[in-house]
Design a protein around this nucleic acid. Structure first.
Lengths: 140, 140
DNA sequence: TGACAAATGCAACTAAGTTGCGTTAAGATG
DNA sequence: CATCTTAACGCAACTTAGTTGCATTTGTCA
């Protein structure tokens, strides 16, 4: 599990400025432990009295993706979700409340990826696996 | 593989009207063999001289989803993709040209889904597995 | 062919995301 | 601590996906 301090130190070492929005975003994503979309991040900040222009958030996330700190997660069709880069994992998505959670397990998709390369000429760079259903709360 | 005629017959049997847009959409999706987004469908129709208002397309796809003919596919973060309901399968998504293709194989995610239910109380209703990378054309 | 509901088109809207540009501030240097 | 440079920021104005209410049209069946 990546800490906020480790992320900030990593950026500082690279000679990258530690700005208000940069620190706030990393802090937020470290605490989240799950993918978050920009509109969610914005309202969450507002509740704490922190205000950033949406342009800033979009640009900052793009920056952190290029630095390898954050990755875009492909989850649903309406918004883009972001999370800290870390151990390879997948997600559960509740179809009722929209809650997204990380799940970690060892899957073996290598044979499939090799078959795709040999049979279709498709070079796999990454994969995403999501489970859709009802979370503990919504199931009742 | 579902044919256009079979789909139309199925609807007719249910007493559903075979309208201009309904027939055009089914015909398009049968030919596509892969997920398509509404903006793509719209421009594709325009090239053939067929014009439908976007509202009609959104409503028609929603209708066909309720009838079990079409399903929404969760692929990328910007648009919603739709395809004909058929054999359970997954997708390859080219990160360069955006091309999406169906791939069919037998995976066994049941143990994972059972573990999710027992350990986290998450009831899986469906899953989605996508491979991102470079297609035969873009790889070069 | 006429009736009626289903389907359609339109206008007007919301919400996510993007771009150009002038201003601000992080942090390095003296 | 003051100054300088440039990365980062905020704003306005924009594009595009998707939605809603309502009046009009059209498929189908009697």
């Amino acid at each position: 599990m990546r800490t906020k301090e480790a992320c900030l130190q990593e950026l500082k070492t690279k000679g990258i400025r530690l700005t208000r929005s940069r620190k706030a975003l990393i802090s937020f994503l470290v605490a989240a432990h799950a993918p978050r979309a920009i509109p969610e991040i914005q309202t969450s900040f507002q509740k704490e009295g922190i205000v950033f222009h949406k342009t800033t958030l979009y640009r900052e996330l793009e920056f952190l993706i290029n630095e390898g700190i954050v990755k875009e997660v492909i989850v649903s069709g309406e918004k883009r979700y972001y999370e800290l880069v870390g151990e390879h994992h997948h997600h559960t998505v509740c179809l009722s409340c929209g809650d997204i959670r990380d799940i970690v397990f060892r899957e073996n998709l290598l044979p499939i990826e090799q078959a795709l390369s040999q049979e279709d000429g498709f070079q796999v760079l990454e994969h995403s696996l999501e489970f859709f259903g009802l979370c503990r709360m919504c199931k009742i």
